[in-house]
Design a protein around this nucleic acid. Structure first.
Length: 592
RNA sequence: GGUUCCGUAGCUCAGCUGGAUAGAGCAACAGCCUUCUAAGCUGUGGGUCACGCGUUCGAAUCGCGUCGGAAUCACCA
């Protein structure tokens, strides 16, 4: 039970005793008291006036008096207008702190018994990952950990788009102008090499289109008749016919990309429990469409195409099978959803996909519902906003794409420079330093991206590097390193063994209050699929600690019992910071 | 045009299941390192919460409308 819930339950008792009326605890409004008022929590009494039939202040006064008289945990009260400010007893906070400190699983919520699949990343194999993918990956990975902390069993998955015209384009360009280059011979990461092929294809293609237009063709025809695009389409047909040469080339180039992606994932600390490949799943869903036709929820047009009419739901008609019987994106998604729910006995499925596909997922849910799947409303589209540059969207054609590998490298270099400047790392081996720079650089990047509400679009300015001061990952990492430093020194000096009781100060109670709110924060963040709430929590805790640190000496405290209490408290803060930041995929160093 | 989302300090963002005088960081300015790590702490300035109307004891938060921005509405994925 949280402190808010505790107060609410006591308020219910007070109202029952004073006014002989039952009010559900859920209707009690309890909030953390604003810092300019005395008290820990505030009960808003306005909603109770119709029960008390008295003025706001008088009602607050009456409830406050009852609570302090009847509950030993509630030590004092003051009523300001309709706000009843309550102070919990020192003993209450002491016990609260003890239970946090003694629970190694603090912040891990009891099991919900639910199994959730989270799909994220899902890249195309024709270009390297960029900043937009980084947001997707970090969100997906973090939400997975968040749902785990909230008591769910989580299966992380990704669907690699390894087939289609786009890959054929890269294949064609490679054959034509890359002279047999491989990642080994070119010294390029595989995904970058294939990305170069894709760019090269577009160069070839647009040159051809230009030429054809110069010879008198209109643009539309030129775009269709360009030899390179015809060759790419040809390759796709051959791929579908299982042509050995095309398949071999396709496999080789995909392998290059996978190896490249693997490196980037590793650098980001991303992993999956199950990887799907589109070449294995793109035919799924046709059976479902047939079933829908039989049941009359879909319709077939005279030309043979199959549609789902969603006009009654305020949407359009949606194509499910082309007139030639081939499937579209939606068909595949219907099929993979059905298969996953069946194979893994899922209770729900989260898709981490950009908000440009809101419509797609709206349709997916509706269609699955029409097909009669009870789990259709257990599908959640975690829709996140695009990452934009000051000039607007990233455009590969204009070369404004922020490459993931470059960015990671840059953050590492930045962390290294800052660390070397501060010169606090004496005694660490080169290997340890290297690990630390990576930890800090990545911490800055991950926090920068995860602290903003997923559904909002976010701005990234490549000219201003990601900050290491203020509300940042390194700030929290630094706070942790500070605490560790104190704990190290205490251990060396043999301090902190005293087990005599000691009282928490007002500032320490503030810290305990924040610590105690953590499980509730995890629950809220999981319900909202928002790691940003966890980031805000960690920042608030770190900031509060730093203030405490500045005006409260710990190792110099003469009273051994108080000193021991303080060490326990800061150890607890460090542990909770590790848990919270762990959900964001950010490691905290012991030194920096 | 339909649908959905967004608009809070110069900039980047919190706060949004209605509660007290709207908060942080960055940037600017002024302080604090012989004392547990200054990637820190303290202070100053900075706001018509896009605008209007409504709902009510109370609105940045809810509803309607207007303005501005984004996404989407393919026999693409």
């Amino acid at each position: 039970m949280t402190s808010e819930q505790f107060i609410a339950s006591k308020a219910v008792e007070a109202v029952k005793a004073l006014y002989n009326t039952d009010v559900p605890a859920s209707q009690m409004q309890v909030a953390v008291t604003r810092k300019e008022f005395e008290g820990d929590y505030t009960l808003v009494v306005f909603p109770l006036l119709r029960i008390s039939h008295a003025a706001p202040a008088a009602t607050g006064e009456a409830i406050g008096a009852w609570l302090t008289a009847s509950c030993p945990e509630i030590a004092a009260y003051n009523a300001v207008q309709g706000f009843l400010n309550l102070s919990l007893s020192n003993l209450y906070w002491q016990e609260s702190f003890d239970s946090i400190a003694s629970d190694p699983d603090f912040g891990v919520l009891p099991s919900t018994g639910r199994r959730v699949m989270v799909e994220f990343s899902s890249p195309n194999t024709n270009k390297p990952l960029h900043l937009g993918h980084v947001r997707n990956n970090l969100l997906g990975s973090s939400v997975s950990d968040l749902l785990k902390a909230a008591g769910n069993e989580v299966i992380k998955t990704t669907l690699v788009n390894d087939r289609g015209v786009h890959i054929c384009k890269s294949m064609y360009a490679w054959q034509k102008s890359f002279d047999g280059a491989t990642p080994q011979t070119s010294g390029k990461k595989g995904d970058h090499l294939v990305g170069d092929c894709y760019v090269e294809f577009n160069n070839i293609y647009s040159a051809e289109v230009k030429e054809l237009m110069a010879s008198g063709l209109d643009e539309e025809t030129a775009k269709k008749e360009a030899p390179s695009i015809k060759a790419a389409h040809d390759m796709l047909v051959k791929w579908e016919e299982n042509d050995p040469a095309v398949r071999a080339l396709w496999q080789m180039m995909n392998e290059w990309v996978f190896e490249g992606f693997e490196q980037t994932y590793k650098a980001l600390g991303i992993s999956f429990d199950k990887t799907y490949y589109e070449h294995e799943t793109y035919l799924l869903g046709k059976e479902l469409v047939r079933k829908g036709l039989d049941e009359g929820v879909f319709v077939k047009d005279p030309d043979g195409s199959v549609w789902c009419d969603l006009t009654a739901d305020g949407l359009d008609r949606k194509l499910l099978l082309r007139s030639d019987g081939t499937s579209v994106y939606m068909t595949q998604d219907l099929g993979t959803a059905e298969r996953r729910f069946a194979e893994y006995k899922l209770d729900s499925h989260v898709y981490v996909v950009g908000d440009e596909q809101n419509y797609h997922f709206q349709v997916l849910k509706l269609v699955l519902g029409k097909l009669g799947f009870a789990w259709a409303d257990q599908i959640f589209h975690l829709s996140y906003g695009m990452v934009e540059l000051p000039e607007g969207k990233m455009k590969s054609r204009e070369g404004t794409v922020v490459d993931a590998d470059d960015l990671i490298e840059k953050m590492y270099a930045e962390a290294k420079a800052t660390s070397e400047e501060s010169g606090k790392l004496e005694g660490l081996s080169e290997e340890e330093k290297d690990r630390l720079y990576h930890m800090i650089g990545l911490g800055a990047l991950k926090y920068f991206i995860l602290k903003v509400d997923p559904k909002k679009k976010m701005l990234f300015n490549p000219k201003e590097s990601i900050d290491f001061n203020g509300n940042t990952g390194p700030f929290i990492q630094y706070t942790h390193a500070r605490i560790c430093s104190i704990l190290r020194k205490a251990a060396e000096a043999g301090q902190g063994a005293c087990t005599a009781p000691a009282e928490l100060s007002a500032k320490e109670i503030r810290l305990v209050k924040i610590l105690a709110s953590y499980p509730q924060k995890v629950a809220e963040a999981a319900a909202a699929f928002s790691p940003a709430l966890i980031a805000n929590f960690a920042y608030e805790l770190a900031k509060e600690f730093n203030q405490y640190y500045h005006d409260t000496p710990i190792l110099k405290e003469p009273d051994a019992a108080v000193l021991a209490l303080r060490l326990r408290l800061i150890g607890c803060i460090a542990a909770v910071l590790r848990k919270a930041m762990g959900i964001l995929g950010i490691e905290l160093p012991e030194r920096m």
